[in-house]
């Protein structure tokens, strides 16, 4: 405490090290035996490293099947990692055994899901849904206190305390997502994992939810892990961004750095693909090809079949992350200094 403020090192709230998760998607044993096929393994998350500081929003972006949602589910404990560590404020919670030793930590993290129509039990009243964490953890002495708290929570997310008596089907998609947020906030968590919370919503409702999430973050000092495929949304909400491709983190950086000076060719491709509202006549070069099947990823850098800069080494070796200003990137082209300048830089 005697140290001056400027030398204080911020300890990350969550640190993920070499996180891996494989899924066995093989056919049943008998089928494999008869058809003479081997096991098929999907490396959904293949060695991911990042850390999130208190009060920050860290976003993971990528196309479908890149493993971003799996990372989210690994962190909240819906899946168990195949390898690697998840460290929450110095406590290891990777394996389910370790996680079970720390129910307090499980209580400090919560999740908001993508589909507001599937994330609320259709047979429960809204009040019971929101109160579930309170009742299960016995956080409050009696029912009257629970009801009062549920009313507060509903008001906090912009609904009426009277809505507690209704059923989920009486609400629109945006309102359901508010209920989902109220439930997540009930146990007063500090860390929220948001898995595509607005991608099922219309733009005007998306704006409401994003504003609400930002307001809550400011008011309650929340830390977010934000999962999305929408770069514009990510740009708007996050402090740091990680870009995932086929189970690996190919680049991460401060939001401004990443969007101003993207390094990895895949990041550049994603930025290029954002439809241009300003219609400045920017020339777009859609990258050919599609995401390869995660069942059979290409060797070396998994992006090389689509990459304009790929060479022999890219086809052979998996690139290691190298630190750059404001973040890190895993690309041989960056390492070998043969990356063309990005448009914004070229124009300047």
């Amino acid at each position: 405490m005697s140290k001056p403020a400027e030398t204080k090192v911020t300890v990350p709230m969550l640190t993920v090290t070499d996180l891996k998760r494989v899924f066995d998607v093989s056919a049943p044993w008998l089928n494999r035996l008869l058809e003479g096929k081997g096991r098929s393994i999907v490396r959904a998350v293949d060695g991911v490293n990042f850390s999130i500081n208190q009060g920050e929003t860290f976003s993971l972006v990528g196309e479908s099947g890149c493993g971003k949602s799996t990372v989210a589910r690994l962190i909240v404990g819906l899946y168990e990692p195949s390898d690697g560590s998840i460290n929450f404020e110095g406590v290891e919670i990777g394996s389910s055994v370790e996680r079970a030793k720390h129910p307090d930590i499980q209580g400090r993290m919560q999740m908001i899901f993508q589909d507001p129509y599937a994330s609320l039990n259709p047979r429960w009243r809204v009040g019971d849904i929101v109160a579930e964490p309170l009742r299960f953890r016995k956080l409050l002495p009696d029912n009257a206190a629970v009801d009062k708290r549920v009313g507060e929570l509903l008001s906090q997310v912009g609904l009426s305390p009277l809505d507690a008596r209704k059923f989920p089907h009486e609400f629109s998609g945006g309102q359901r997502q508010r209920i989902s947020i109220a439930r997540a906030l009930a146990g007063e968590p500090e860390f929220l994992v948001c898995d595509e919370p607005t991608s099922a919503l219309d733009v005007s409702v998306q704006a409401q939810i994003l504003n609400l999430m930002k307001d809550l973050q400011r008011k309650l000092g929340l830390t977010y892990l934000f999962i999305s495929h929408n770069l514009a949304v990510v740009y708007h909400v996050s402090d740091k961004v990680g870009v995932m491709y086929l189970g690996r983190l190919v680049e991460w950086a401060d939001t401004q750095t990443l969007f101003d000076r993207p390094l990895h060719p895949y990041t550049r491709m994603l930025l290029d693909a954002i439809p241009d509202l300003d219609m400045t006549g920017r020339s777009r070069t859609p990258v050919a090809g599609e995401v390869p099947s995660p069942l059979n990823p290409p060797p070396g850098c998994s992006f090389h079949p689509r990459c304009p800069l790929a060479n022999e080494r890219c086809r052979r070796d998996v690139p290691k992350a190298i630190a750059v200003e404001g973040g890190a990137v895993a690309c041989h082209a960056v390492e070998e200094n043969r990356l063309p300048p990005w448009k914004a830089q070229a124009a300047a």
Partner: peptide, 13 residues
């Protein structure tokens, strides 16, 4: 596989 079940699991039930 629906998300309300996953939500209950995250709560710790």
């Amino acid at each position: 596989s629906k998300e309300y079940v996953q939500a209950a699991r995250v709560i710790g039930l």
